[in-house]
Simulated scan of single mutants.
Amino acid sequence: MSETFPDDTSGFDAWASAGIAGFRGPSRAKKFPSGQSNPTFLIEAASGRYVLRRKPSGKLLKSAHMIEREFRVLRALQGTGFPAPRALALCEDEGVIGSAFYVMAHVDGRIYWDPALPELPRAARAPIYDAMNAALAELHAIDVEAAGLADFGKPGSYFARQLQRWSEQYRASETARVADMERLIAWLGENVPADDGRVALVHGDWRIDNMIFAADAPELLAVLDWELSTLGHPFADLAYQCMQWRLPNAGAFRGLGGVDRGEAGIPTEEAYVAAYCRRAGLEGVPNWTFLIAFSFFRVAAIVQGVYKRSLDGNASNPERARAMGAAVPLMAKLAVEEVDKGARPQL
Rank of each mutant, 00 (worst) to 15 (best):
G153M: 12
E227R: 00
G58C: 02
G342M: 02
A214E: 04
E338D: 05
V285T: 04
Q36I: 01
E219Q: 13
G189A: 08
R207K: 09
G153Q: 12
L188W: 05
G189F: 10
P83R: 13
R322P: 04
A252T: 00
D7P: 07
A123N: 15
A45V: 07
D114C: 10
G281R: 10
S99W: 04
F290L: 04
R110L: 11
E319L: 08
P83W: 12
S229R: 08
R298D: 02
R171E: 15
T4C: 00
A14Q: 12
V192F: 07
R69A: 02
P56A: 10
A84D: 04
E227L: 02
A21H: 08
M243R: 00
R125Y: 06
S17Q: 01
R161P: 13
W206P: 09
G197F: 04
L42C: 12
E219T: 15
V199T: 12
D312S: 15
M132T: 12
M104R: 14
D340F: 06
F253H: 07
L330D: 03
S57E: 05
V107K: 10
A332H: 11
R86W: 01
W166R: 01
R165Y: 08
G342V: 03
W166I: 01
A29I: 11
V202T: 04
A323S: 11
A200R: 13
A124W: 05
L330N: 03
L61I: 08
Y112H: 15
A179N: 02
L238K: 06
R254N: 10
M181C: 12
R254C: 14
R198L: 02
A116N: 05
S99I: 09
T175S: 04
A214C: 08
E219R: 11
F152N: 02
F294T: 09
T4Y: 01
V306K: 05
D237V: 04
L228W: 09
P267V: 13
R278E: 11
Q244I: 01
A274I: 14
D8H: 08
E92S: 15
G284S: 11
R161T: 14
R246C: 03
M243G: 00
A186F: 09
D180F: 07
E92N: 15
G79T: 11
H203V: 15
